[in-house]
Amino acid sequence: MRTLVLIVCSFLLFGCSEEGVLTSGRVAENIAPDASLQYSGNFVPTAGISVAGAAQIYFSEGSYKVQLTGFSISNGPDLKVYLSKSDVPNNFVNLGNLSSQTVYEIPDSVEVADYSHVLIHCQQYNHLFAVAALTQN
């Protein structure tokens, strides 16, 4: 009976995937050499998480971008990069999935000066991983 349960559970966990045109890798986005650093802050972890690095916000050619520098963090299942108005994820702009890329574009409609933090947040389990309080450069 235990074997049967194990087989059933194994099947339930079974899933597979294969990348396609829209998921076949990321084009590394870079900060332009002439971009000006506007805001920056070091990441601080929440309980049980380890994190290193900083968030920097650059302005170039009419748009803002967040760059994560020297960045590493504990593994999480559904980590997002938020530009937030506070140190908790209540009022924020979701910049997308945390991935191997280090640059995240901020939508043009966002008034960057209104936002004070960059957060790394696990959306699936609603768990905050790290907080970077921004200061103006």
């Binding site: 099947f11 339930l12 079974f14 597979c16 995937s17 294969e18 396609g20 829209l22």
Partner: peptide, 11 residues
């Protein structure tokens, strides 16, 4: 499911 995003199989 198979398409431009790739192939994904799951229960």
């Amino acid at each position: 499911a198979t398409g431009s995003f790739g192939t994904r199989s799951q229960f």
